[in-house]
Structure formats: C-alpha cells, structure tokens
C-alpha cells in the first residue's frame, strides 16, 4: 500500500526564516496516519524548529501546516490549545517538571485536561509507566533519574492523553546503547499498540531507519530526498549518500569556509 494514502499532517509550501537566515524554503512534507515518519538531516537544519512549527509554537512566514482540516498557524489561541491536546511531544531534554515526582509529571496532562477521579488517574498513570517500564520509579523525583529514564518518563507523559500524534525530538541523542535500544523498541511498540502517528526528528541513522516507515531528508531548508528506508538507500545523490554513510567530506564540507591556508599562515599577526 502507498504509505502516503492517508495523511494526518500536510505541510504545503511552508517557508520560515529567523532574522535574515532562511530555515525552510517552500518545504512540503506529508505525514501518513498511524505510521512512523522520520525527519532526518544534519544538525542545524531546523528539524526541531519543524516540530515547533507543527506544534504551533512558531509561526511560518508563509504556507500551510494542516492537521487534518485545521491550518495550525491560522488557529486562534483556544483552538491551538485544543489541537495540542491531540499531540504529544517528547523534548530532547525530557523537559520533566522538576518540582513534581515522576507520577505527578505523568498525571499532569490528565489533571489539566480531564475530569477523571484520582483513582482513575492513578490507574492510567501506572499503566503508562508500566508501558515504559518505570512503574517502580513512580515516587522518584526527576533529579533522581538517569537521562534514559527521564526520557522514558517524558514519553509516558507524552502519551498520557492518548494523543493522535507523538513527536520525538532527537530521542536517541546522548543515550547509552542499552537506553537507546530500549527507546527504539518502545517507540515502535507504542506506535503499533496505540495506533498513533509518530514523527521522529533525528540524525541517528541506524536507529531511525530501523523503525521508520517513511523518511524525509532535510538539508538547506529543502527536502533533498524522501521515501521508505529501502528507497533512500538507493537514492543517487551525493548529499544523501554523505549523510547516510557519515562521510566526513562531501557536499557538506569538512572545512568551515576560510581563506587559503598558506595565505593565512603567512599573514602577519595584526
């Protein structure tokens, strides 16, 4: 089946710039429902910015970001907050509330957005924590968790309201191999079990390609390649190959632009 037949997020001709720097230039990305979509690219290409644009924390200069029928940048504050209830986001740092225990962190979205009784909230929180394997850590404070555990708690919090879309911002960065394996597994398993749509922003090629159904490769504000992981490995593009194989030099040069070395060395110190 064509992975792009049922679209939940449709970004059409979107441009975004910060000051004079263009981050996205007329970019179009379609995220299929119920699948794991990966957005990959070198650091500094605005992948996190893209998630913030989808979440409505930033507004594009032009173009549309459609969540089904809603154009996110055009939503009023109230509708935007309603739309956000359908999204969960796992931040790079975990972003747990440091003044609340693990349990309270996961319970927070439920307390804010539902009228459930304390007993029901407790059951849901324990189930979410069980899903990420940290039910035993419910009473700990965020400062007592390792980086990998914090990210798993944040994941439990992101799925607390059973959102339609879960966005992962660099979920594998800075994780040891075990924690990384756990997270890869969890993202895939949760996606299957809960049936939500996952968007992963990452530059960890092996892990991401292992779980993604569809991949967009972004560089210089444009989509330079897209397709299933298999299709991407056969793309005939220097830029894509350099990124996929981690080559030190290529279209993305090893050297930061500088004058000729000899000239620079012979110059007198000012």
């Amino acid at each position: 089946m064509d992975p792009l037949s049922d679209i939940i997020i449709d970004i059409r001709g979107m441009s975004f710039s910060r000051g004079s720097r263009t981050i996205f230039d007329d970019i179009s990305i379609r995220v299929p429902r119920g699948k794991v979509t990966a957005i990959m690219g070198p650091s500094g290409t605005g992948k996190t910015t893209l998630l913030k644009l989808i979440g409505g924390q930033l507004r594009p200069d032009s173009g549309q970001i459609l969540l089904e029928q809603d154009d996110i940048p055009k939503l009023g504050r109230r509708e935007l907050f309603l739309a956000r209830e359908r999204m969960g986001m796992l931040f790079q740092s975990g972003a747990l509330f440091t003044d609340m225990s693990v349990f309270e962190n996961v319970a927070f979205p439920l307390r804010v957005h539902t009228d459930l009784t304390n007993d029901m909230i407790r059951d849901i929180v324990l189930m979410k924590l069980q899903a990420v394997g940290l039910r035993g850590a419910a009473k700990l404070m965020p400062s007592e968790l390792s980086g990998g555990m914090a990210r798993r708690v944040a994941l439990a919090r992101a799925i607390a309201l059973d959102p339609d879309i879960v966005m992962y911002d660099e979920p594998f960065t800075g994780q040891d191999p075990i924690a990384m394996g756990v997270l890869v597994n969890l993202i895939r398993r949760l996606n299957q079990a809960l049936g939500h749509t996952s968007i992963i922003v990452s530059h960890d090629i092996k892990e991401t390609l292992g779980i993604a159904d569809y991949v967009y490769m972004v560089a210089d504000g444009r989509v330079i390649a897209e397709g299933t992981p298999n299709e991407l490995s056969t793309v005939d593009s220097e830029q894509v190959r350099q990124f996929m194989q981690g080559l030190p030099d290529g279209p993305v040069p090893f050297h930061y632009p500088a004058p000729d070395l000899m000239q620079d060395l012979l110059q007198e110190t000012p």
């Binding site: 979440g55 924390q57 956000r84 999204m87 931040f91 740092s93 972003a95 440091t98």
Partner: peptide, 14 residues
Amino acid sequence: ATEQLASLEMIGVD
C-alpha cells in the same frame, strides 16, 4: 532552558 515552559505549551497549558 530545560524546555519546561515549551512542554507546558505543548501539553496545552498556558
């Protein structure tokens, strides 16, 4: 700095 404010926004809390 630890993205707690951003994550509040994403949870739908001002």
